[in-house]
Computed example of a mutant assay.
Amino acid sequence: MRAETADTKSRAGRRTIGLSAQLIALPRRHREEQQAERAKARQVWKEDDWVFTTATGRPVCPYSDYHEWKDLLASAGLRDGRLHDARHTAATVLLILGVPERTVMAIMGWSSSGMARRYQHVTDGIRNTVAKQVDGLLREVGEEGDGLSEEAN
């Protein structure tokens, strides 16, 4: 058995997640492009039900992802990073969006909340948002006259 077709390492590796309409459009477009490749390759195409294939339907070399990831980062002008770092980014985006921890755990396939601490990173944007919320709260309390006394100033 090839590693590419082996079962995932745990039940959490197989899970249902929600996708936005924009994300759903990407694999549909990929499928259309692959159907065009299939038609162009004709009898050379090897049909094995792979989602990502070479131009002749064969499985993509696992190292291709690595090189494509590195090229993508470079062309976008981003710092070099591992493909796995994208999981940290995804988890941090869920934190920025305010997604409840239990939902984040289900989406990311985590069995313990400690994984959130490892993967989610507090950004300057989050810190600034909290500072503005505190500032707004202090203004509201001060305006009402029941939270900030003259002695506190």
Score class of each variant (00 low, 15 high):
120 Q>G: 05
5 T>N: 10
97 L>M: 11
131 A>Y: 14
31 R>M: 02
96 I>E: 14
7 D>N: 11
101 E>T: 15
8 T>K: 06
135 D>N: 13
100 P>S: 10
123 T>H: 03
117 R>S: 14
81 G>N: 05
13 G>N: 10
43 Q>P: 00
84 H>Y: 14
53 T>L: 02
104 V>W: 00
104 V>S: 00
107 I>V: 12
19 L>H: 00
77 G>S: 09
120 Q>H: 02
58 R>K: 15
55 A>C: 02
20 S>C: 10
143 E>L: 13
28 R>C: 03
30 H>P: 01
24 I>F: 02
73 L>V: 00
138 L>S: 01
58 R>M: 12
89 T>R: 04
10 S>P: 00
33 E>W: 03
110 W>F: 08
22 Q>S: 11
43 Q>C: 01
128 N>V: 00
49 D>R: 14
14 R>F: 08
47 E>P: 03
7 D>I: 08
1 M>H: 10
30 H>V: 08
77 G>V: 02
14 R>G: 10
72 L>Y: 12
21 A>K: 13
77 G>W: 00
72 L>F: 14
40 K>Y: 07
2 R>L: 12
136 G>E: 06
22 Q>K: 07
104 V>N: 00
112 S>V: 11
151 E>S: 12
4 E>K: 13
68 E>F: 11
114 G>A: 13
133 Q>A: 14
99 V>K: 03
106 A>Q: 09
71 D>Y: 08
34 Q>G: 00
59 P>V: 08
115 M>H: 03
37 E>S: 09
147 G>A: 11
10 S>D: 07
95 L>K: 01
48 D>E: 12
117 R>K: 15
97 L>T: 04
37 E>R: 15
118 R>D: 05
60 V>W: 03
8 T>S: 05
6 A>L: 09
9 K>D: 03
23 L>W: 04
22 Q>M: 07
70 K>Y: 11
27 P>G: 08
65 D>V: 13
86 A>C: 08
109 G>T: 07
39 A>R: 04
133 Q>W: 12
